[in-house]
Design a protein around this nucleic acid. Structure first.
Lengths: 144, 144
DNA sequence: ACCGTATTTGCATCTCATGCGAACTGCCAA
DNA sequence: TTGGCAGTTCGCATGAGATGCAAATACGGT
């Protein structure tokens, strides 16, 4: 997503207001690589702004996602996670500690997709491809 | 997953009982390609066995998934979906009608994965790879 | 500084999923 | 075939994640 300063301009030009709550969330999300849930972000935000509402965090996350500034991803772990990296990338998920890491993959568009009883699946118009690698991160590989 | 007959034997040999409810669910799930949610399966089951409990459906789905007879997959759509196809495959999801189709992909193991500031991501021990293609199915491509 | 409108907040509500215990039943053993 | 233990079913309560709603508040253009 864009910088807090750029988001401030973007929000204003859309008739949206830039409140202290939103500014805080802009800062907490910018360059954030932890793929936080709404609750997790709320915890961090609360530490810096006691009293901020979980509802506001949800609201702002929804707004940002709607503007294309955030990607929301649903892994199996219950809550939805938010990713300020909206570029073309994929994810590695550690099955042990749930750490999520952004990864970049070559050759995705060249994958050969086929249905079970047909030569190919060209009839489906793919708009995006999401790849999730599940396994063990370096740290957890040792502690097996 | 295996056939209802095979599952019956498998359950018995594990000390688990084969009830009419379970037999019905075995039948409804075998060769089922609709990737149903627990609720969806409950609806179909209720039609054939009025009074069956949603709780029982959840219970049996959990059991089957634990035995490796079902794969549970979390797309963004809220409820978890179950897939009796436990072979190596991936999914196409129609963003318009939510239809999910199994697809087979070549070359997954040859994908070149890299981190942002490192040559590769070999430090991560990938155990499985899940690919989701999002787009429009044949039917929904027309009705744009 | 004013005022209209967007936002924040807290609470209620909703969905999906699981915990729990009483009643029931499959199925092994005698 | 029957008895009885252990696994199941089922309904209700509970919990997590997320959203609807309305009153009070505050941003920001004028």
């Amino acid at each position: 997503m864009r910088t807090p300063a750029e988001l401030t301009t973007a929000f204003r030009s859309l008739g949206l207001k830039v409140t202290p709550q939103r500014q805080l969330l802009f800062r907490l999300l910018h360059d954030n690589t932890t793929h936080p849930t709404a609750e997790a972000l709320f915890e961090v935000a609360s530490a810096q702004m006691p009293g901020i509402s979980l509802r506001t965090v949800y609201q702002t996350l929804t707004d940002l996602a709607g503007m294309g500034e955030l990607q929301s991803i649903a892994f199996g772990g219950g809550a939805i996670r938010f990713d300020p990296n909206v570029g073309q990338h994929h994810h590695q998920v550690c099955v042990s500690c749930d750490e999520i890491t952004d990864v970049y993959v070559d050759g995705v568009d060249q994958l050969n997709v086929s249905l079970r009883n047909e030569p190919d699946a060209h009839s489906f118009a793919t708009a995006s491809t999401d790849i999730v690698f599940r396994g063990r991160c370096v740290r957890c590989a040792d502690t097996v």
